[in-house]
């Protein structure tokens, strides 16, 4: 019922001690490059390299990594299928027009576009997962402050972060207690149980929030919780690897922008 939080994995991954800005540069760089690419080669290359880095360098369990792709990929396949059917083109392989304003067709162009969007999603998702799996949120708070984001926003983010873990504990406890008492045996019962669960957690969260602010007030809290970030200097080899990866990806984006998967009717 509850997905494992990527945060737990990020806290123990093998790239934990690498400089945060360097990891962010690699992740955000890959994300942007795969976004601006106009061909499928560069995003696919990015997806493969970044996944390799996640599995081999950060030593994330391959099964866990694969599972993370299931939901987004199934949603992407559904939407890509719709795009292939409606986007049209000149070389129609199949077409059907049920209504005057609605026409479905499969063409060379639409297949190419569908595959391209799918590859871009893979590239983007792996870059996002790279950041999520290697950089714990606690390190990102420090970067957010350095980027001069509004203080209120950073404060809100830290409090939401803290509360999520408090709530998750309570939620899991209550949920197990409900399951033990057959709370989810029928559909009607499970809707009722879920509503009670949400209600209990809502009130518990309210109390937890009040306790939190009281505890902070006692420690002279004035709306800014200062956290010292760990000092991790940028090392030469990882920096060169990231730079090399970004340069090769940029070249691929420029050179392979016009390459398509299927070029004409065989």
């Amino acid at each position: 019922m509850f997905e494992q939080l990527l945060e737990d994995i990020a806290q123990t991954n093998a790239l934990r001690e690498v400089n945060t800005s360097l990891k962010l540069a690699a992740g955000l760089g890959a994300l942007l490059l795969s976004l601006v690419s106009t061909g499928y080669v560069a995003p696919l290359f990015i997806a493969i390299v970044v996944s390799g880095a996640i599995l081999l360098l950060a030593r994330i369990d391959p099964y866990t990594y694969g599972e993370l792709f299931v939901a987004p990929v199934s949603f992407a396949l559904l939407s890509v299928a719709a795009i292939v059917l409606i986007s049209g083109g000149s070389d129609a392989l199949w077409s059907w027009q049920p209504l005057p304003w609605l026409s479905f067709s499969i063409t060379i162009e639409s297949i190419n576009q569908g595959l391209f969007i799918f590859c871009r999603t893979l590239g983007g998702m792996s870059a996002l997962l790279f950041i999520a799996l290697t950089t714990p949120m606690t390190d990102l708070f420090v970067v957010m402050r350095q980027c001069r984001l509004p203080e209120v926003l950073v404060e809100l983010v830290t409090i939401v972060y803290r509360t999520i873990f408090i709530l998750l504990d309570q939620l899991v406890q209550c949920y197990h207690a409900q399951v033990m008492r057959l709370g989810y045996s029928t559909r009607r019962e499970s809707i009722r149980s879920l509503a009670t669960l949400c209600g209990v957690v809502f009130i518990a969260s309210w109390n937890a929030g009040e306790d939190l602010i009281r505890a902070r007030d006692l420690r002279c809290y004035d709306g800014k919780l200062v956290v010292l970030g760990a000092v991790r200097p940028v090392e030469l080899r990882p920096a060169l690897a990231v730079a090399g990866f970004l340069i090769v990806s940029s070249i691929l984006v420029v050179l392979t922008g016009k390459i398509t998967i299927i070029s004409g009717i065989p």
């Binding site: 019922m1 509850f2 997905e3 209120v152 404060e155 809100l156 409090i159 939401v160 803290r162 509360t163 999520i164 408090i166 709530l167 998750l168 939620l171 989810y184 559909r187 499970s190 809707i191 879920l194 949400c198 957690v201 809502f202 969260s205 309210w206 937890a208 929030g209 009040e210 939190l212 602010i213 709306g223």
Partner: peptide, 23 residues
Amino acid sequence: REALALLGVTGAFIFILSSLKLP
């Protein structure tokens, strides 16, 4: 000032809600 804690809690609550799968 208490509203900050309240808002944080609301955010966490929305997060928890949306990680629930409806039966």
